[in-house]
């Protein structure tokens, strides 16, 4: 494969990991949402580039969906929600940003150490894509557990989805799953935003998940 093509793919996938880190240290809601839009933009560029070098035109559709829905529509919707709910204040974290970043670095190291030897036979492109994709996935998980706010947890989950899309496009010639998984990520996002946030808002006047914990069953 063309050296340049590979380098660009590598750059974009690496960039995605970098943006995942940026998501981790955001302390304001607006910044977090903007960063997520950047995350989605990078993933859509990466997928489009894969479509180009793999000669797989159907991947352009995936890229377009990622761009339109995740980089534009969902961030706009989230901004509206944030303004309406008045929650653009500081994000509450469970552990400090510093520790979270350190844990994130550990997770990236782990995923590279695990993935590189195992995928050695699968070709350079796949190898690197999968290592980065696993990093994004683990960073997304880390974000979900280190934040208390419902919106940040949803964003963490959507960044996991982005990592999965990167992995699916990296696996050369994978059929149908790309389209379907994208359709599902839209569905998830809609359900989450539409149903949960508004219901949670309606009941508690807050989207801080911490408020929910006092309603756990059994604590009678």
């Amino acid at each position: 494969m063309d050296r340049l093509a590979l380098d660009v793919a590598h750059l974009l996938a690496g960039g995605l990991v970098l943006v995942s880190f940026m998501l981790l240290y955001q302390d304001r809601m607006t910044g977090l949402v903007n960063n997520f839009a950047l995350h989605a933009l990078v993933v859509s560029l990466s997928v489009a580039w894969q479509a180009h070098i793999q000669h797989a035109p159907h991947l352009y559709i995936t890229a377009a969906i990622a761009l339109i829905v995740k980089a534009i529509v969902i961030p706009l919707a989230l901004h509206r929600i944030i303004v309406q709910l008045g929650i653009h204040r500081t994000i509450e974290t469970v552990v400090g940003i510093g520790q979270t970043m350190l844990a994130g670095i550990g997770l990236v190291a782990l995923s590279i150490m695990v993935m590189l030897p195992i995928t050695a036979k699968a070709g350079t492109l796949t190898q690197q894509d999968l290592a980065f994709a696993l990093s994004v996935l683990l960073l997304g998980l880390l974000m979900m557990i280190s934040r208390r706010n419902a919106v940040s947890q949803v964003i963490g989950f959507m960044s996991i989805e982005n990592g999965l899309i990167l992995a699916a496009t990296g696996a050369k010639g994978m059929p149908l799953v790309v389209e379907i998984s994208v359709a599902f990520s839209i569905l998830i996002a809609l359900i989450v935003i539409g149903v949960f946030l508004f219901r949670i808002r309606e009941r508690f006047d807050t989207v801080d998940i911490h408020a929910l914990h006092q309603y756990r069953g059994e604590q009678l």
């Binding site: 419902a150 949960f196 219901r199 949670i200 009941r203 508690f204 998940i209 929910l212 914990h213 309603y215 756990r216 069953g217």
Partner: peptide, 8 residues
Amino acid sequence: PAALEAAW
């Protein structure tokens, strides 16, 4: 509230 917590 309990149902929402469970669903979430």
